[in-house]
């Protein structure tokens, strides 16, 4: 019995490390987003709590923990309660095969990249549950828009990931990183097109400007999480920023060589690349206006999907020609 228990201790420690990283990363990203938006809009941003407002997120977390949990009348109790978990848990599980460094990975599944793509697609159900369970028009509309958007942009996203899988010939995250030892994938022209398509689709998947239609605050209050307060709201918030980290870390792994890099430990390079992509996505968010719903869907189906299909075809042709 004791041997059985001790065999699970390393697993437990890895899980706790992932949870700790997610909490810290989400708090840091929220602070970073406020600072970057302030710089772009020529403001200072949070300055009062700690040096340059560094502890603002900590203060916000304490505030959210102490806030009352309000449930709307007529809400579908069970669905309403479960929705935040359906959104947060997949984001945590996706860290199972996130290659932080040459030895820092919880478990290198041989279907790693597909595992991350499939697990993160579960959170759509949570968004639906939040929209349906809240008994609120704005939530319902936000949930439906989110579903349409995520289903549409999942197609170009997976097709651009497919290009990388074809180039590397493996699904394992560590295998994809090792396949780039001779040269990062985004230096090849066909993979660079896939990289651009991936970034556009990832922006849409994480519901960020210019594709933040599900929670367009000027028309839908806050979209599917309008009715949530306190810690339940915080769970949606943490999930949002964790998903932002996941798409950026996957982009760094697939296109920018993951943890490969000279002189420094591998984890340093991985985090540097991932946070650079996050900063880039934040820059886009605070620079561009929101696009219209029908324009956005048309862009996905009439432009991104055909381009990525042709890209897959060209990649296959190139691979056959090269032998």
């Amino acid at each position: 019995m004791i041997g059985f228990v001790t065999s699970y201790i390393p697993l437990l420690l890895k899980g706790l490390a992932v949870l700790g990283f997610i909490a810290l990363s989400a708090m840091f990203l929220i602070w970073l987003e406020r600072k970057i938006s302030a710089k772009i809009q020529n403001r200072l941003g949070p300055m009062m709590t700690g040096p340059h407002g560094a502890f603002q997120s900590v203060a916000d977390t304490v505030k959210l923990l102490l806030k009352e949990n309000i449930m709307p009348t007529g809400a579908d109790t069970t669905i309403w309660w479960l929705a935040p978990f359906f959104v947060t848990v997949p984001a945590v599980v996706a860290f199972l095969c996130m290659p932080f460094g040459s030895h820092f990975i919880v478990h290198d599944l041989n279907v790693g990249i597909l595992f991350i793509c499939s697990i993160t697609s579960i959170s759509v159900i949570g968004v639906f549950m939040a929209g349906w369970g809240s008994n609120n028009k704005y939530s319902l509309l936000g949930g439906m828009r989110s579903a349409a958007q995520i289903v549409s942009y999942e197609v170009p996203l997976l097709l651009s990931v497919l290009v990388v899988i074809m180039e590397s010939g493996t699904l394992s995250m560590q295998g994809i990183v090792r396949a780039q030892e001779l040269g990062w994938f985004f230096l090849k022209p066909n993979v660079f097109i896939a990289f651009v398509i991936y970034l556009i689709s990832a922006t849409a998947e994480t519901n960020r400007v210019p594709f933040d239609i599900p929670e367009a605050e000027s028309e839908l209050v806050a979209g599917y999480h309008t009715e949530y307060s306190g810690m339940k709201f915080a769970m949606f918030f943490v999930a949002e920023y964790t998903n932002l980290f996941i798409v950026s870390a996957v982009a760094a792994t697939l296109f920018l060589g993951g943890w490969l890099g000279p002189f420094r430990p591998s984890m340093f390079w991985f985090l540097l690349k991932a946070y650079t992509i996050i900063a880039f996505l934040m820059w886009i968010r605070w620079t561009l206006p929101r696009v219209r719903m029908d324009q956005m869907m048309g862009f996905a189906w009439k432009f991104l999907v055909p381009v990525s299909l042709v890209n897959v075809l060209v990649t296959g042709w190139l691979l056959v020609v090269k032998g």
Binding site: S121, F128, E154
Partner: peptide, 14 residues
């Protein structure tokens, strides 16, 4: 998960 939960169930709920 990818086909049934991410695809088919999403369309069901939609």
């Amino acid at each position: 998960i990818l086909v049934y939960v991410g695809g088919i169930m999403t369309l069901f709920v939609f």
